[in-house]
């Protein structure tokens, strides 16, 4: 339970006299229950257990593909002075596509905490056994393999597919991509045989890999992932592709440097806790270890890659 918000006037006076916040406010650009919401709540729970903050609050602000939360966060700077914004790769994609005018450049990147990798899976009984068999099929008849994904054309699953296809010199525009409303329905389409291949996120696919319903051909991580040690990365298959859907924390643009250091330090401590590692394991999240300027540079790199891919796909000029 959170502290009553009504006593704000008193709190404002208090807050201005204290150094930095003893309360942390998360702005979540999605409804309750999703991945971003879960990330914020796991972090908050652990911060509270270890006493970094006395009170933690979460504000869900769905809408506009994350754009509404972003614009609110940036427009009401005084109110969100001490608040942090949780976000993920679609922030870059949607801002490149022009859905909203702001981008990650308007924020202060604090840390990248979690990575989800793109993965290509087929049904367990599919005759295609390896990525190279698949790429041969793609090369000879690109339109015969229908690929499903859990999001609209031009968003992450499609982009990851395009990245992989470009790396084997197949024009992504010749491959048929079928969008579904969410990864679960896309998975069902794979199981029902409506699509042959699925381009999706590793986290969501994990349970299906474990249960043996589907088989993974390749993953977009740079190095092999422990939990699926038998799945090759695209890089070791000889293709120069690595891609991660990050989830991270941002703060206001005019963040005092002292506060930035403090926040980065706190997240560094978070990473060391057993609770955090247990949460990662339980939820099937792969950790990502980026902070401050390293994270900012990573975002710049990723934006460049995404811009090229989206241009190749014809979504931006």
């Amino acid at each position: 339970m959170q502290r009553p918000q009504r006593i704000r006037l008193a709190l404002i006076l208090l807050a201005s006299s204290c150094s930095y916040a003893d309360r942390l406010h998360f702005v979540i650009p999605a409804g309750p229950g999703g991945g971003l919401d879960g990330t914020a709540r796991e972090i908050g729970r652990i911060f509270k257990t270890f006493g970094q903050y006395e009170s933690i609050s979460y504000e869900n602000m769905p809408g506009g593909g994350g754009g509404r939360a972003l614009s609110q966060y940036l427009e009401n700077r005084s109110r969100y002075r001490d608040a942090v914004l949780v976000n993920s790769t679609p922030l870059i994609v949607r801002s490149l596509q022009g859905l909203f005018p702001q981008s990650f450049r308007d924020l202060t990147p604090i840390v990248g905490l979690i990575a989800d990798y793109g993965i290509f899976v087929v049904r367990a009984d599919d005759p295609i056994l390896t990525w190279s068999q698949l790429s041969t099929t793609f090369k000879s008849r690109p339109s015969t393999v229908v690929v499903g994904g859990g999001s609209v054309r031009g968003s992450l699953d499609h982009i990851v597919l395009a990245l992989a296809l470009s790396s084997i010199n197949v024009n992504p525009r010749e491959v048929r991509y079928l969008p579904y409303d969410g990864g679960a329905k896309a998975m069902l389409a794979l199981l029902s045989g409506e699509v042959r291949l699925l381009s999706t996120g590793l986290g969501e696919t994990m349970p299906f890999l474990d249960s043996g319903q589907v088989r993974a051909l390749a993953v977009t991580a740079a190095e092999r992932i422990e939990t699926i040690a038998d799945v090759p990365t695209l890089q070791e298959l000889g293709h120069d592709v690595a891609f991660a859907n990050w989830r991270g924390i941002f703060a206001q643009p005019q963040l005092p440097p002292k506060r930035k250091i403090e926040l980065i330090e706190q997240f560094h401590e978070l990473r060391q806790t057993n609770e955090w590692n247990a949460a990662l394991q339980k939820r099937g999240w792969t950790p990502l270890d980026l902070a401050g300027n390293a994270f900012a540079n990573y975002l710049l790199e990723q934006e460049k890659l995404l811009r090229t891919t989206l241009t190749k796909l014809g979504f931006i000029n």
């Binding site: 769905p62 809408g63 506009g64 593909g65 754009g67 509404r68 909203f100 054309r153």
Partner: peptide, 19 residues
């Protein structure tokens, strides 16, 4: 937002309508 192509329809640039 169009459920297949992801383009905006009848939103007139309003972020509030894009969902």
């Amino acid at each position: 937002t169009d459920p297949s192509a992801g383009v905006q329809r009848f939103t007139f640039g309003q972020l509030d309508l894009s969902d």
